[in-house]
Design a protein around this nucleic acid. Structure first.
Lengths: 191, 191
DNA sequence: ACAACTAACTAACAATTGTTAGTTTTGTGT
DNA sequence: ACACAAAACTAACAATTGTTAGTTAGTTGT
């Protein structure tokens, strides 16, 4: 039985609103109105506004961490790892589209341990990605450009995927993956 | 004489704060404190918080529009145009670093005409970029991938440039440009 | 010295914020 | 039918928000 708890409903609604206007521009009363109830009633299900944000963000962050760990454990070439990372981002974009906006735009409003957890995961993620690129350059599989530029070119695109994915009328996930891999690996110039 | 007016100082300080915490998380009292004065005193120089945001964003948006117009007027190949666009973004990133954050993250808090102006400029910009890519594909200069995927891959990276540019200890603008052009045109795979 | 400006100040406002306390309604198992 | 828990409600709170009014200090031109 696919029974969504009331708490999960609140989280979905909040995620949608946060995505549209940002964490600070959404009031508890806004969330309540979208749920068809009064602000005070929300507190029967959640501890506060912060919980909404941190649950949302850390959930997605853990999905990334977990996915990256799997990629790192795989005994494949650096370029194949990058392909897997692109797949990972597409999959998370499809399944956590709303939470991704909060992660990208509102992580700085996390507090204390939640903020530290997030930053830790982000740093580990980037550092894993960086080492994949460096390995690729060292073994001659990847062109010897500045690793940081490669990293941020790919990562910026992957991180912003959620903005485009639904706006541009549902391009198929497989087409998207194939084209993105082609662009980053072979470039856009016809040969 | 390089005399910055008080209003310009306020705009710089606001831009810095908006970049760190986002428009809605910065109060007029925050801005005032950073300026070493009281919130009410700000109103001797500006009309309100909205003016700060719209001035900041529309200034940068106009720089983009102007730059794109110049590129479109140039009688060069599609790929050369894309190179020029990359240059344009790097230049704006260096000169308007702070305003870029507001443009990227807080444009939805613009009101009325300002919002309409911004959306108009953004749409025109993207549509110009899209037509350059399509021209390139039509004339065989660019690989026949989904144009939308090419567009958003490049544009996402360019738009997020400001986040990385200063964090990663000042990599030279020329190196940055050379590597980014190489990555998008030739890809990252060694040949 | 005096008038005119500029730019700071203090004090206060109405609205909105997240949240709590206490109460009533709704639904479920016995 | 009754008890119990879940989940909604009303009312209110202290704090913070953007902004205005009125005042005072500092600078400049004559």
């Amino acid at each position: 039985m696919k029974m969504a708890t009331r708490k999960e409903e609140i989280m979905e609604v909040s995620a949608r609103l946060f995505k549209e206007k940002g964490y600070n521009a959404v009031s508890m009363r806004d969330i309540a109105k979208a749920m068809g109830m009064k602000a005070a009633s929300l507190y029967n299900h959640i501890s506060g506004k912060q919980e909404l944000l941190s649950t949302l963000i850390l959930q997605v962050a853990r999905a990334f961490t977990q996915g990256m760990d799997a990629v790192m454990a795989d005994a494949i070439s650096p370029v194949s790892k990058i392909e897997k990372i692109i797949e990972l981002h597409i999959e998370i974009t499809i399944n956590h589209s709303e939470g991704l906006a909060a992660l990208n735009n509102d992580w700085m409003h996390l507090e204390n341990d939640d903020l530290a957890d997030f930053l830790g995961m982000r740093e580990r993620y980037e550092s894993n990605f960086r080492s994949i690129i460096k390995d690729g350059i060292d073994c001659g599989e990847i062109s010897p450009r500045h690793p940081e530029v490669i990293l941020f070119s790919i990562l910026s695109t992957l991180r912003t995927l959620y903005v485009w994915y639904q706006k541009r009328g549902k391009l198929d996930a497989n087409v998207l993956k194939k084209d993105m891999v082609a662009i980053f690996l072979q470039g856009i110039v016809a040969k």
